[in-house]
Design a protein around this nucleic acid. Sequence first.
DNA 1: AGCACGCCGACT
DNA 2: GTCGGCGTGCTC
Length: 721
Amino acid sequence: MNPLLVTVAVPVPLYRGFDYLLPASLAAGARPGVRVRVPFGRRKLCGVIVRAPFERVDDSQDYRPLDAVLDDAPLLGAELLALCEWAAEYYRHPLGEVIAAALPGSLKHGDAAVLHRPQRWQLTPDGQQALATLPGRNRAQRSALEALQAGARGAGEWPVAPAIRARLVELGWVASVADDARQPAAVSDPLPLTAAQQLALHELEGGEQGFRVSLLEGVTGSGKTELYLRRLQASLDAGRQALVLVPEISLTPQLAQRLRERLGDGVLSFHSGMSEGEREQAWLAAREGTTPVIVGTRSAIFVPFARLGLIVVDEEHDASYKQQDGFRYSARDLAVVRAQRLKAELILGSATPSLESLHNAQAGRYRHVRLSERIHAQAPPRIDLLDVRKQTLAHGLAPPLLSALDRCLEAGDQALLFINRRGYAPILLCHACGWQAACAHCDARLTVHRGRSRLICHHCGAQQPLPRGCPSCGAAELMPLGQGTERIEQALLNRYPRKRIERLDSDRLGRRHELQRLLDDVRARRVDVLVGTQILAKGHDFPNLSLVGIVSADQALYGADFRAIERMGQLVTQVAGRAGRAGQRGEVLLQTHEPDHPLLRLLVERGYAGLSAALLNERREARLPPFSHLALLRAEARDAAPPMHFLAAARELLLPLRGLQVMEPIPSGMERRAGFVRAQLLVQAEQRSALQSALAAIVPRLTELARGVRWSIDVDPADLF
DNA sequence: AGCACGCCGACT
DNA sequence: GTCGGCGTGCTC
């Protein structure tokens, strides 16, 4: 018999498969999904077997034997492996890298997959006694013991420094006990449903079981989460697990906590803010079936489950579900694929659904479940356009907005100001000679950050100290032009010295618990005005806002990207939705220089539903997604010519293929970025399959053409820059 | 992506 | 005379 070979996916950016000789001694355990250690060039890599062993037939090729089989049982089950293969095909990304993206760090590098038995820390009788007699100076020990007594349960929920814990164990005051019987602790009762919720729940539950997608379109405050909870409970009751995706790390603790209160403490999180160890344990627990629910961000779509029955994608319109570099997958779209393959239920929830999902719902592929009433029966916030033309702006704020703020704060209410720009000002200008602070590596201006006293490029991260005078003409005074969150915050601090003004943007999200503390302060009404970027639009709940000011959304109106207005509508609607308290209508002011823009008027008069309907019509006319399918071929290099030449050659390869419309290669929106000159080629197809086969056909040739050019394929690009 | 091999400038 | 610059070539 001929020797056996196995195909191994190795984590390298190569589109070819690599076959290895399978030593007879290792043949028993070699199955798809099992990790192996293989020699690769001069190094050793951890790869995954992706095909059942097969007999060697050709003698022309030399093979190297694999070193070791790392798993007794496949680490990637058939379902997850198939999902990875599907994603690699669809997104035209090397399978080895896709699998690497699906594995938590430590497992990716070949560490043994060991699920620690859940353990729980417990006060011993000695510990009980010690707590009573412990001298007051042992503060750390005391508070740790008190936390345990107060009912901290899982190991992760007992906040104690490892050194203190070790000491307490040594003293015999605490002990760990196995916690297999994860009794659902402190499970609270479901909230009563409104009539509208009941109706919606009925629609979600009804009809054919098995694979189904529901687009749950519910305005802010309509109680989508309670419906998720009902479906999650039903899934758990049926003995199946569930996956809940959220767009942002900062939303996981909040939601995970709420799920734990209702579904028990088996609910685990999965996101990049966790340590590798924590992520690995959550991943393994889901795979074993020992955790009923995972709440996570984009990458959690690759968590394996023993019996997944339900996926919820919250805020499904959110662009963060699309990975923007490397393996450019959409977790929301993969959720559809995964649910279909598993015959599972999928709920896509949003107050402002993406045009793609709306289109799918209208085409009958998704159930369209609407929740149009807010629970507390407030009127939905009305958005008023504030024409700022010819008005004197103070740091970008027009007098009517300022007087609305005055009234709001006098009444002791809270206000929120939204501006989608970090920093103090996006431009630093010399009034004497016209010089502007520009990035040395990008075609971009540097943003003034007053607090840190620096100029920062928001595209490549380059920084420099804030210059004292003009570097070009020496004039003493430089003018910050335009506004960011920092500047609005400053202006409000000056105007309202006795009020508490807080800023919320990614610059402030450094420390782990800071966001949580800030949000708590806002909810407890210790903050009067909150100034922030789109983080404010992402589902955080602020129950006491009576005024929302949107400093500007005009940029989207001039934006070159065909999705700019859709995004603006989502952002504005989401931010506006934060306004209004029980029984009181919120006020929303949207500053604009284009008060007569038809799409802006549509948004204000007919809401997101009106805007999205009009945008869908435009897309249909223009044959843009979701009425066609796009792929973007990007290229970059140190010099300007190679990317264009590469793309021109790629275009030649594509032109003879059928069912495609191939544009001319063009320089990217920001041509130079982080020292690279970038260009792109847009390919459009009516049929997804035509796009797929075209890309499949040209990838091997691209590899040959790419001399000195870095390139990537973006299937279903989120933006065309 | 790594990692090596391979030929041309400023240093112990 | 060497250390090292990154160009390009390969990885079963």
